[in-house]
Computed example of a mutant assay.
Amino acid sequence: MDPHLLRTYVTVARLSSFSEAARELGYTQSAVSQHIAALEQDLGATLLTRRPVAPTAAGGRLLEHAEPLLLRLDAARADVARTAAAPAHGLTLAAAPTALGPRILAALPAAGVTLRVTARDVVPAAVATGTADIGLTDGLVAPSDPLRLPDVAPLITRGVGEEPVCVLLPDTHPLSRRTGLRLGDLADARWIDAPDTALPLAHLRAANGGHGFRCALRYEGTDVSVLTALAAVGHGLVLLPRPAATGVPGTVAVPIAHPRVVHRTELVCAGAPGGAAADFLDLLVRAASRS
Results as ranks from 00 to 15, higher is better:
residue 5 L to R: 15
residue 6 L to T: 05
residue 6 L to P: 06
residue 12 V to N: 06
residue 13 A to C: 08
residue 15 L to E: 09
residue 17 S to R: 06
residue 18 F to V: 15
residue 22 A to I: 10
residue 24 E to Y: 06
residue 30 S to A: 15
residue 31 A to F: 11
residue 35 H to Y: 15
residue 36 I to D: 12
residue 36 I to Y: 06
residue 36 I to V: 14
residue 39 L to G: 07
residue 40 E to I: 10
residue 40 E to R: 10
residue 41 Q to W: 01
residue 41 Q to C: 04
residue 43 L to H: 09
residue 44 G to P: 12
residue 47 L to S: 11
residue 48 L to C: 11
residue 50 R to P: 00
residue 52 P to W: 06
residue 55 P to K: 12
residue 56 T to D: 04
residue 57 A to P: 04
residue 60 G to S: 14
residue 62 L to T: 03
residue 65 H to E: 15
residue 67 E to I: 11
residue 73 L to S: 11
residue 74 D to S: 14
residue 77 R to D: 13
residue 77 R to M: 03
residue 77 R to E: 15
residue 84 A to Y: 13
residue 85 A to P: 02
residue 88 A to K: 13
residue 91 L to A: 07
residue 94 A to N: 03
residue 96 A to R: 04
residue 99 A to S: 14
residue 99 A to F: 05
residue 102 P to Y: 05
residue 106 A to L: 06
residue 106 A to P: 00
residue 109 P to N: 06
residue 112 G to F: 03
residue 114 T to L: 09
residue 114 T to A: 14
residue 114 T to W: 00
residue 115 L to T: 11
residue 117 V to R: 00
residue 118 T to H: 03
residue 121 D to N: 10
residue 122 V to N: 05
residue 132 A to N: 00
residue 138 D to L: 02
residue 143 P to A: 07
residue 147 L to F: 04
residue 147 L to H: 02
residue 152 V to I: 04
residue 157 T to M: 08
residue 165 V to W: 01
residue 170 P to G: 06
residue 173 H to P: 00
residue 175 L to F: 11
residue 178 R to E: 12
residue 180 G to F: 00
residue 183 L to Y: 03
residue 184 G to H: 03
residue 190 R to E: 09
residue 193 D to S: 15
residue 193 D to I: 02
residue 195 P to R: 13
residue 196 D to G: 14
residue 197 T to Q: 04
residue 202 A to D: 14
residue 205 R to Y: 03
residue 208 N to C: 13
residue 208 N to Y: 00
residue 212 G to E: 01
residue 215 C to A: 12
residue 217 L to P: 02
residue 218 R to P: 00
residue 221 G to N: 09
residue 225 S to F: 02
residue 225 S to L: 11
residue 226 V to W: 01
residue 232 A to N: 05
residue 232 A to C: 10
residue 238 V to H: 07
residue 240 L to V: 05
residue 242 R to K: 04
residue 243 P to F: 04
residue 244 A to G: 05
residue 245 A to W: 01
residue 247 G to M: 10
residue 248 V to W: 02
residue 253 A to V: 09
residue 254 V to T: 09
residue 255 P to N: 12
residue 255 P to W: 05
residue 259 P to E: 08
residue 262 V to Q: 02
residue 266 E to M: 03
residue 267 L to V: 00
residue 268 V to T: 02
residue 271 G to L: 03
residue 271 G to K: 04
residue 272 A to N: 06
residue 278 A to K: 07
residue 282 D to T: 15
residue 286 R to S: 13
residue 287 A to K: 01
residue 288 A to S: 15
residue 288 A to C: 07
